[in-house]
Simulated assay, not measured.
Amino acid sequence: MEPKVFDIEYRRKLLYKRKRRRQLIFQISIFLSVLCVSFFIILLGNKDNNVSSVNQKITTSSSSTEEKFIICIDPGHGDWDTGAKGTTGVFEKDIVLNISLKLGKLLESNGMKVVYTRTNDSLSWLETANDSLKERIKIPEVFDADLFISIHCNSNYDSPDSKGLETWYKLSNNDSKELSNIIQQYLLKLNYTEDRGLKTYKSKDDALAVLELNSSISSLIELGFLSNASDEKYLNSDLGQSNCAEAINDAILSYIKSNKESLINKRNSN
């Protein structure tokens, strides 16, 4: 039997192949390890970002809620309930709706959220005056309004000379009284009529329902007498309506600025 020949070149090639295979396996292992570590780092990073994003959204939402006060504007009457009728035939319901819509736009431009008890003259829920009051009180409750502003015009057909501005507040409610006083003072600056002062009812038996039964800080404004030619002329003009809306807007913003902290506390306690 011939002895086996030891082939050194073959042996070298074999060792080289084994070495290359081990290096390749090692490199693949390193690559997979790096890939896994990177994956977990990315995963953890996304988790932290998501948490941070959620926290940021909550903070933003909370801050927005605190700063964006809700104002419910109540244009008195509407539909078949015309309210007072002016000397020229104009209806209270139309004048106060125009002023209310102008007021709402001004408040929204100043960062307020505005809800209305009505935005037009068609009120499907209005069957009786009592139904109307119930719905007007329900709306600020549903929207958790901070302030409730009811806008009206007055009349006295037995005395056409009667004229003037008055603002009503909720009995024994200092917040309502303060708001009403600020509104009265800002409207008086327009100098279009007389000052009839702040008003409230003597007892709950003769209370104004939109004030007494309202948990929002409430005020009811009687802008003037439509039975008086001078008051009616001003309130029926576009300039007069715009001026009244601006004055009420400025009064509301002034009240909120002075009472921001208490308004936020009141909201948080509800």
Rank of each mutant, 00 (worst) to 15 (best):
3 P>Q: 08
109 S>Q: 07
57 K>W: 05
10 Y>D: 13
139 I>E: 04
236 N>S: 15
234 Y>C: 09
22 R>V: 07
207 A>M: 04
190 L>S: 10
79 D>C: 01
206 D>M: 11
195 D>R: 05
211 L>T: 05
219 S>K: 01
235 L>G: 06
108 E>T: 02
212 E>M: 11
208 L>Q: 08
266 K>R: 15
189 K>D: 11
201 Y>T: 15
128 T>H: 02
56 Q>M: 14
89 G>Q: 10
153 C>H: 02
44 L>D: 14
60 T>K: 01
67 E>W: 00
263 L>S: 03
112 M>T: 11
101 L>K: 09
213 L>A: 12
230 S>I: 08
172 S>G: 09
160 P>S: 06
212 E>P: 02
20 R>T: 09
75 P>D: 03
103 L>E: 02
117 T>W: 01
184 Q>N: 12
250 D>M: 08
127 E>W: 11
83 G>D: 06
161 D>G: 12
138 K>M: 09
140 P>K: 01
183 I>C: 10
6 F>L: 15
15 L>P: 06
245 A>Q: 01
126 L>T: 08
1 M>S: 15
248 I>R: 00
110 N>V: 07
108 E>V: 00
75 P>L: 03
158 D>R: 09
34 V>I: 11
169 Y>L: 06
129 A>Y: 14
55 N>I: 10
251 A>D: 03
118 R>Q: 04
118 R>Y: 03
236 N>R: 05
179 L>N: 13
124 S>A: 12
128 T>L: 02
30 I>N: 12
186 Y>T: 05
266 K>M: 13
1 M>W: 09
219 S>V: 05
63 S>E: 06
214 N>W: 07
39 F>L: 08
108 E>G: 00
245 A>W: 01
147 L>K: 00
173 N>F: 06
133 L>E: 03
107 L>E: 01
8 I>E: 12
37 V>E: 08
228 N>E: 05
147 L>Q: 00
58 I>S: 06
84 A>P: 14
135 E>N: 09
77 H>K: 07
231 D>Q: 05
167 T>I: 10
16 Y>E: 15
209 A>T: 11
86 G>R: 10
94 D>Y: 03
86 G>N: 10
168 W>P: 06
263 L>V: 02
265 N>G: 10
162 S>H: 04
94 D>W: 05
264 I>W: 00
4 K>L: 14
39 F>M: 07
20 R>F: 05
267 R>I: 00
49 N>C: 09
23 Q>H: 11
185 Q>I: 09
233 K>E: 14
125 W>E: 06
96 V>F: 02
131 D>M: 02
216 S>A: 08
181 N>D: 13
175 D>E: 15
193 T>I: 07
149 I>D: 01
150 S>A: 13
257 K>W: 03
242 S>I: 06
240 G>C: 04
10 Y>M: 14
172 S>R: 15
47 K>Q: 11
18 R>C: 06
140 P>A: 06
133 L>Y: 12
29 S>E: 12
110 N>M: 08
62 S>M: 06
60 T>R: 00
112 M>D: 07
